[in-house]
Amino acid sequence: MNITRNNETKYLLLVILSICFLATGGILVKLSNLPPINTGFYRVLFSIPILLPFIWKDLLHINKKDFIVMFLAGVFLAGDLSLWNISFNFTSVANANLLANFTPFIVIPISYFIFNEKLTKYFYSGAILTIIGVIILMIGKIEPNINNFFGDFLALLTSIFYASFLLTVYKLRDRISSAIIMFVSAFGTVFTLFIVLYITEGIHIPRTIPDLLPLLGLALMSQIMGQGLLAYCLGKVNATLSSLICLTQPIIASFYAYILFDEILSFLEILGMIICIFGVYIAKKTIV
Rank of each mutant, 00 (worst) to 15 (best):
T130V: 01
T130D: 01
I131S: 08
I131P: 01
I131T: 15
I131N: 00
I132V: 15
I132Y: 10
G133T: 10
G133D: 04
V134S: 09
V134L: 07
V134W: 01
I135A: 12
I135F: 15
I135G: 03
I136N: 12
L137R: 03
L137E: 01
L137G: 03
M138T: 12
I139N: 13
I139F: 12
G140Q: 09
G140H: 02
K141H: 06
I142E: 02
I142V: 15
E143Y: 03
E143H: 11
P144R: 09
P144G: 00
N145H: 03
I146T: 03
I146F: 02
N147Y: 00
N147T: 11
N147F: 01
N147D: 14
N148A: 13
N148D: 07
F149K: 07
F150L: 14
F150S: 12
G151E: 08
G151M: 05
G151R: 11
G151K: 07
G151W: 00
F153A: 12
F153G: 06
F153W: 09
L154V: 09
L154E: 05
A155D: 05
A155F: 11
A155P: 13
A155T: 15
L156K: 13
L156F: 13
L156N: 05
L157Y: 07
L157F: 15
T158N: 10
T158P: 06
T158Q: 07
S159H: 05
S159I: 11
I160G: 09
I160S: 14
I160F: 15
F161M: 14
F161A: 15
Y162I: 12
S164W: 10
S164T: 07
S164L: 09
S164E: 06
S164D: 08
S164V: 02
F165K: 03
L166N: 13
L167N: 02
L167T: 05
L167H: 01
T168W: 07
K171M: 04
K171R: 14
K171I: 12
L172H: 06
L172Q: 09
L172F: 09
D174A: 06
S177E: 14
S177H: 08
S177D: 14
S177F: 02
S177Y: 04
S178C: 06
S178R: 03
S178Q: 01
A179S: 14
A179C: 00
A179Y: 11
I180S: 08
I180D: 00
I180R: 07
I181P: 07
I181S: 11
M182A: 05
F183V: 06
F183E: 02
V184Y: 07
S185T: 10
S185K: 09
A186Q: 02
A186R: 01
F187Y: 11
F187W: 14
G188E: 08
T189M: 04
T189W: 00
T189I: 04
T189A: 15
V190M: 04
F191V: 07
F191I: 09
F191Y: 05
F191N: 04
F191M: 05
T192A: 00
T192F: 08
T192D: 00
T192S: 11
L193V: 00
F194G: 10
F194V: 04
I195F: 14
I195L: 14
